[in-house]
Amino acid sequence: MGWFINNVLYRTVVLGKENIPQAGPVVFAANHISFLDGPVLFAAASRPMHVLIKQEMFKGALGSFLHGIGQLPVNRSGDRKALQRAKSILDQGRSIGILPEGTRGDGAAASVSGGVAWLALNSDAIVVPVAILGTRHSGEGVNHVPRFGRRVVASFGEGLRVQRQPGESGRASMDRAAESIRAALANHVSTTAMRTGVPLPEVPLRELQNNILNSTTSRSAADHH
């Protein structure tokens, strides 16, 4: 289904496949602007993945289908059990996909959930930021179905690994890891939008430029904390 979406319904351009590790555990962390982001991410990667999807989607035939292809339901208000299942998959050297903004918005990664930081800290996984662009444009609602044939971009950025530092509390580690991941994702999304000319919905060019500067500074500060 993901292949059909990327290659028949839409013209999906996949960038940065060389940044995808071909072995070992990986967390693919993508921005979130549309209901199509998960399928686009799933189909664009060169490795199979188990995507954390809101539990409301796991109903009826669709729910059976999602379970059948190995996707993971998650309660967005907090779901330790789902994170433990995801960690078990990573411990087997496999891949997890997550949309850490938690809900559909402008996709600029102004904030991310603590779940992605917990997975990164409690596994040996590399976190690969993924920019999904074109699945929604300015003026379109979050449930809008984009016209067929639209250009969509899925861009895989340079991976990062976050680890606890000696003497650092659990909360401090989580906060630092979340900020490092958020900054890397925000920077990659903004850079990809500038590079490809496919904008984020409702985000002007000047704000993208500021995102790149602020995210680079923020990630550097978090990395050297």
Rank of each mutant, 00 (worst) to 15 (best):
R76Q: 13
V152C: 03
L66V: 03
A86L: 10
A45H: 05
I20V: 15
V8P: 15
G24D: 13
L133D: 12
V145T: 14
M1F: 09
G170F: 10
V40W: 11
G2T: 09
R164E: 13
S180W: 00
F58G: 04
Q92C: 04
M194A: 10
V162N: 00
T216S: 14
L52E: 04
A43I: 01
H225P: 10
A29N: 10
V127I: 11
A86H: 13
G170V: 04
T217I: 10
T103E: 07
R176I: 00
Y10P: 15
S220H: 12
V162H: 03
V128D: 08
R147K: 15
V203K: 03
R161C: 09
M1A: 12
A110Q: 13
R164W: 09
V116D: 05
A177E: 01
L99A: 14
F35S: 07
S88F: 01
V13C: 06
R76I: 00
G114S: 06
N122E: 14
Q165C: 12
N6A: 03
H137D: 12
R136I: 06
R76C: 07
L160K: 06
I132F: 04
I5F: 13
P199T: 01
F156E: 05
A222N: 02
P146F: 01
G141N: 15
S138G: 11
V27L: 03
L208M: 15
S95F: 01
T192E: 08
G63C: 02
G93R: 12
Q84Y: 07
R219Q: 10
K81T: 14
I132Q: 02
V8A: 08
P146Y: 00
M194F: 05
I53S: 02
L52G: 05
R136V: 08
H32V: 07
F28E: 07
A61C: 03
G141Y: 14
D106A: 05
A131C: 08
P73V: 00
N31I: 06
G68E: 03
G149H: 12
R11L: 03
G105A: 07
G16D: 02
Q71C: 02
I89R: 07
G197V: 00
R104I: 10
E56I: 03
H188Y: 13
D91Y: 07
G115Y: 06
V8T: 11
G115M: 03
L205R: 15
W118S: 03
A184P: 15
G63Q: 08
L66M: 10
I33Y: 06
I69M: 09
H224W: 11
T135G: 05
Q71D: 02
L213N: 09
V162A: 00
D91P: 15
L119T: 03
A117Y: 05
F28Q: 09
N143F: 14
N210Y: 12
H32P: 13
H224I: 05
